[in-house]
């Protein structure tokens, strides 16, 4: 996994609540057996009409906006556990998703793929969306090490929470498999204890 320390980038505003993983990546694109190339299908049915033409009303098709940060409405990533949603966002080029609330499974999937979910207050989110809509050039700074998100354009600054273990993983590019495999002896001991309790009863 790539290391994540901090980024400063423009952002894409998606002021929609309850963006579910079926919108992020529709089920018909889940037939792949590898994890590459999902960016092409990100928000497919919002980006394109059924006849394949681009939907000019959708923000990803609006050249005014760009950047590695997606700012989205409340309860982002609800629904299915498909990690393809995180792969699609990452493959498209997003490194940070900002929202006032994230669904649990999506949040974990994002973190496992080096995409940082940044949860901000509803008030801050509203200001952020408004600022970017008014001034698409706005630069947003997301600093993982010091756990804050800031924009000098409106003077906004807010700190965000992240599990210290996950933070270390992201900053060093570690993943959970390495850690869990290193604990195998302890896991085997746990299994033995469990088996012993079962037999001796």
């Amino acid at each position: 996994m790539e290391k994540f320390i901090s980024i400063t980038s423009r952002a894409v505003p998606l002021a929609v609540e309850n963006v579910d993983t079926d919108q992020i990546i529709p089920a018909r694109f889940l037939k792949a057996t590898d994890r590459e190339g999902f960016g092409e299908h990100l928000f497919k049915d919002w980006r394109y009409h059924k006849d394949g033409s681009e939907n000019n009303d959708f923000v990803l098709n609006d050249s005014t906006y760009s950047g590695e940060i997606l700012i989205a409405g409340h309860n982002f990533g609800c629904g299915s556990s498909r990690e393809h949603a995180a792969w699609a966002l990452s493959d498209y080029g997003f490194k940070v998703i900002v929202s006032s609330f994230f669904a649990d499974i999506f949040k974990g999937n994002a973190l496992n793929n080096g995409v940082l979910p940044v949860q901000v207050s509803p008030n801050f989110l509203e200001k952020l969306l408004k600022t970017i809509e008014e001034n698409p050039e706005t630069q947003i700074e997301v600093n993982l090490e010091d756990q804050y998100i800031a924009s000098s354009t409106f003077g906004g600054h807010e700190s965000f929470e992240i599990d210290s273990y996950k933070k270390t993983c992201l900053m060093n590019g570690y993943d959970d498999i390495d850690f869990l495999v290193s604990k195998r002896a302890e896991i085997e001991l746990f299994e033995k204890r469990k088996e012993l309790a079962r037999v001796s009863d």
Partner: peptide, 22 residues
């Protein structure tokens, strides 16, 4: 509970998951 594919790999590798208790 449902898990993502990275977690499927974790369980394959260790029969365990790293989780914060809900």
């Amino acid at each position: 509970f449902g898990i993502g594919t990275s977690q499927v790999a974790q369980v394959f590798a260790s029969q365990c998951l790293l989780l914060t208790k809900p």
